[in-house]
Write a protein that binds this DNA or RNA. Structure first.
Length: 446
RNA sequence: GCCCCCAUCGUCUAGUGGCCCAGGAUGCCAGGUUCUCAGCCUGGAGACUGGGGUUCAAAUCCCCAUGGGGGUACCA
């Protein structure tokens, strides 16, 4: 039976690197029908905090990685580590030391050559004589990382340690500890790091690095998971879009690469838009509503079917859930703001004024405001006027949306509704076209 | 400084000695579809870090150099 764990230290938010480590452990456990445990390594009393612990747990939950046991907290297991310290002390494999008035227990590091097989890399060898006698128990009574990690891995019967390769240098120390205690070390798999877009270690200046930031920006957990999984792992056969279930099915550590990967937001955006396009509208709506609410829209007060139709209409156009409101905001407001440049380009000129007036007249006489009827009506109009449809569509789009890009004009009008559509058209005719057209004649008669 | 790891298109990667004058994806460019944008379709440019070996044959194996990353804490 395979047992793995994810063991973050709560000294920072869960970032994409940690998320990937958690994901690979989870995938490995699920693939082999083993267990996946959570362990919080909070032995640094200064830097650890409850806030980070909660952030990490919430992040893992949001990503949909369920765990079988834990979380266990190392800060609550001092007694256990002390037992191991006594064992090492009594067999003279460890000793008390004092530096600058601080009493600690150090491990008597054996000086023989050390090597271990890494599943992802080749055999890694170390000259143990270069490794000093490291501290097992600090002056404050807490264990150090290397010691607590080893004791817990042994106690939890961890069979595979899958972690970031910044831990490679720790591995010989931990193996030496296993040997000193007469225990069999687990197998190790060190994952290459995830770097920032510029190839340097991931940090705040790379923009969003925390998992929760991606959630708040409107990325779907499945999309993030898929993207992150590909940072170092490949299912082969030129496949890239892989569902969770498929990943579980085909995940192996052998297919994890050994080169560090740069985080590439552009590709994440593509992946996210792909998942958005594949998500059923109802489900998409659940994700969208919180974003609408935070934008000040009373999402619950809106008609579900209308909102669903809107999401359906725009699903191919937004890359993040946050992006959705940015593109559709004009549906949720009474008035629309018009940019001067856009007005000059699309709403001025006599010919235009005339045609927009005719559009207004035609539309106000329409009973059926569904897209098919709207299309028929406007197509007939441009045919009568002998102009290309584009000549009409753009000014009309600007008039009712305030922008030069939107979804199809008929669908947009249908969802906007007759009232708002006419109101905005009327507003434009009054405000922008007035001066250049003959006074009364061209004004909406509505 | 010392120790360790790594090295294929801008980026993520496929590739485990011949199928590779290197495949996919993304991004970029061009064209098509079209009421704009997006999407979709078609095409294009774009890489084996360098140098030595080994071999009939090397992106694949070995060595060196270079570059990048990590470690060198009573942090994890």
């Amino acid at each position: 039976m395979i047992h793995v764990r994810f063991s973050p230290s709560p000294t920072g938010f869960l970032h994409v690197g940690g998320a990937r480590t958690a994901l690979y452990n989870w995938l490995f456990a699920r693939h082999h029908g083993g267990t996946f445990s959570l362990r919080i390594e909070d032995t640094d009393r200064q830097r650890s905090s409850q806030e980070f612990t909660e952030d990490i747990l919430e992040g893992i939950k949001w990503l949909g990685l369920d765990w079988d046991t834990g979380p266990i907290f190392q800060s609550q297991r001092l007694e256990l580590y002390n037992r191991y310290v006594e064992m090492l002390l009594s067999s003279d494999k460890a000793y008390h030391s004092e530096e600058e008035g601080k009493k600690a227990v150090r491990f008597r590091m054996p000086h023989d050559a050390l090597e271990f097989k890494d599943i992802i890399r080749s055999t890694i060898t170390f000259d143990a004589s270069l490794i000093e006698d490291f501290v097992l128990r600090k002056a404050d009574g807490f264990p150090t990382y290397n010691f607590a990690c080893m004791v817990d891995d042994a106690e939890m019967r961890i069979t595979h340690v899958i972690r970031g390769d910044d831990h490679i240098a720790n591995t010989p120390k931990q193996i030496a500890l296993y040997k000193a205690l007469g225990l069999e070390p687990p197998q190790f798999a060190h994952l290459p790091m995830i770097l920032g877009e510029d190839g340097t270690r991931l940090s705040k200046r790379h923009g969003a690095t925390a998992v929760k930031e991606y959630r708040d920006l409107g990325y779907l957990p499945d999309a993030l998971i898929n993207f992150i999984a590909l940072l170092g792992w490949s299912p082969g056969e030129d496949r890239e879009v892989v569902s969770r279930e498929e990943m579980v099915k085909c995940f192996t550590l052998e297919r994890v690469g050994s080169t560090s990967a740069r985080f590439n937001k552009t590709k994440l955006d593509w992946m996210n838009s792909l998942y958005i396009r594949q998500t059923p509208a109802g489900e998409l709506l659940r994700g969208l509503k919180p974003f609408l609410s935070s934008a000040g829209v009373d999402a619950e007060g809106l008609e579900e079917s209308w909102l669903k139709a809107l999401a359906e209409l725009y699903r191919e156009r937004f890359k993040t859930l946050q992006d959705f409101f940015l593109q559709t905001s004009f549906f949720f407001t009474e008035e629309v703001e018009y940019q001067p440049e856009v007005v000059d380009k699309f709403l001025k000129g006599e010919a235009l004024t005339g045609i927009l007036q005719e559009v207004y007249d035609e539309l106000s006489g329409l009973e059926d405001f569904r897209k098919e009827a709207l299309e028929g009506c406007l197509r007939r109009l441009v045919e009568r006027k002998h102009i290309g449809f584009g000549k009409l569509a753009q000014p009309l789009r600007v008039a009712i949306t305030g922008r030069t890009v939107s979804a199809g004009i008929f669908e947009t009008m249908e969802l906007l509704g007759k009232e708002k559509t006419l109101k905005r058209l009327s507003h434009c005719l009054h405000t922008f076209c007035k001066a250049e057209s003959s006074p009364e004649a061209n004004l909406p008669r509505a």
